[in-house]
Amino acid sequence: MHSIKQTNRVKIALSLVLLIFLTIAVMVPFYFMVVGSFKDVQNIFSNGLNVKLEISKMNLDNYKSLWSNQDGIYWSWFKNSLIITVLQTVFALIFASMVGYGLALYRFRGRNAIFAIVLIMMMVPGSILLLPQYKLFTQLGLMDTYLGVILPGIVPAGSIFFFRQFAMGLSPEYAESARIDGCGEFRIFWQIYVPLMKPAFGAMTILQTMNTWNDFLWPMVVMKSDRNFVIPAGLMSAMTPYGNNYKLLFAGSVMSVVPIMIVFMLNQKQFIEGLTVGGVKG
């Protein structure tokens, strides 16, 4: 008995070594980013990438430059990212939950075909359609607009799949008894099943927010004028062959991580539970 306890202790100690090592490895790039954002550019690059923690040499100048640089263009990018992320996430959650619910709780002609298309869409990268979508959106006059960035992603296949898996685990009996009480189909969805799918909404809110906030290629293609960029595209534009705007890059990177961290912190528990409950069951 004693020796079993002993081996268990050794196992836990070894596990903790691994976990702590990984924690450090994961945090190192954040450390570079945050420390760099409080330092003068000359200081950072005087010695390669100087990220020693020297409180006396650290200041808020880089952050101040977010306001002063080109009349605070960074905050235009920030605003664009915020608007696009909120709109796209809200639409994606509404539509993906509807479609996932429809696929899970009704039997109808074409259901399997539609679900097969959802699966194919999950396996095929959207970037194969870069040019034809660009052409279509140019013809529709949606270039350089929020709508142009948002539209292709408002009914995402991955989220449909997740909501469908989640809803498959819910009993259809609630719907049947509600029908007997004369409840309409949409009300059954909205008032009975949406509350039941709350953990799935928690998980998908984070995934959607994260994907949209960090999306790069499509927004870069759609948004042509520099005031209309989203943050990742804007930061890329701060790197030019003629020199990089390091102040903007460092402080801007840190600021761009903050909102998504807040969303994660607030939804964390729901998120992990949602992923666990919804689980991916092949």
Partner: peptide, 16 residues
């Protein structure tokens, strides 16, 4: 903690 890096966009991770 392990989940946090994926919150950072690949562009910003790439810059660092």
């Amino acid at each position: 903690v392990y989940f946090v890096p994926v919150l950072t966009s690949s562009v910003i991770a790439g810059l660092i």
